[in-house]
């Protein structure tokens, strides 16, 4: 019967919109409660500049560089793996070199003299984080970065990219603690072979090149082909504890 009645289902549909309308007001929800119609809080939007969206922990926007302690003590060794793997090619790294052209080493590590990311090109894919063997680059969740100049302001240099490990701990506690554990284990491993012959088998993932060593030779610019992302195969033979 109802099927033939023109407009019956239009009215039923309007009932749905009326209910949703009521759900967005406190008085409306009270009316629905009185009428015993199951309802929810229909307010699904937030007033953005005043109220900010709560993002999940993994929310990623643009990358940043992590340092431990002081900004001079950054984890990046300018190995250029991220520069090579970045799909839109938005990372530019220059290694710190002395007058003879040899890489400068601080605490046995090479350093980037220049580390730029063009944020107007970056597409937040997180591949740089995945490939970094030193956990030196991580994804930030700061997203209010609008600027009036697309070229000057969106080109982030090393100073703008550097953020402390504490900041990383604060924005992504789970991931940061995982990274810290991994780095601590690596440190132990590099400290241990100082006394004995390097005995441990190289872990398959993550590629654990000891942070002290860095890449043996400075990688030359944009040579195609594989970069030494893993540790050398040498210390595989003696089983641990043998």
């Amino acid at each position: 019967m109802a099927r033939r009645l023109v407009g019956f289902h239009v009215l039923r549909g309007m009932g749905v919109t009326l209910k949703t309308f009521c759900e967005t007001y406190p008085w409306g929800r009270a009316v629905l409660r009185v009428l015993r119609i199951p309802s929810t809080n229909g307010l699904v939007t937030i007033e953005y500049p005043e109220v900010k969206q709560q993002h999940s922990e993994r929310f990623r926007y643009f990358p940043f560089l992590v340092y431990d302690g002081t900004p001079d003590d950054l984890r990046c060794v300018a190995c250029k793996i991220c520069e090579q793997e970045c799909p839109p090619q938005c990372i530019h790294i220059v290694m710190e070199k002395d007058a003879q052209g040899r890489p400068v080493k601080v605490h046995g590590r090479t350093l980037p003299a220049q580390f730029d990311i063009d944020m107007s090109i970056c597409m937040s894919c997180r591949i740089c984080v995945d490939v970094c063997p030193f956990d030196a680059i991580e994804m930030d969740n700061a997203y209010e970065l609008s600027a009036s100049d697309r070229f000057e302001h969106m080109l982030f240099d090393k100073q703008r990219l550097l953020k402390s490990n504490e900041y990383f701990q604060q924005i992504k506690p789970t991931e940061a603690s995982e990274v810290d554990q991994r780095l601590a284990a690596k440190q132990k491993k590099t400290a241990a072979p100082a006394q004995a012959q390097p005995a441990s088998a190289a872990p398959s993932s993550p590629p654990a090149a000891p942070p002290g060593a860095g890449p043996a030779a400075p990688p030359t610019g944009r040579t195609p082909g594989p970069q030494p992302t893993g540790p050398p195969r040498a210390p595989q033979s003696p089983p641990p504890g043998a």
Partner: peptide
């Protein structure tokens, strides 16, 4: 797959 994600060029 995990190794591939870590070192895409290999």
């Amino acid at each position: 797959g995990a190794a591939m994600g870590k070192a895409p060029r290999t």
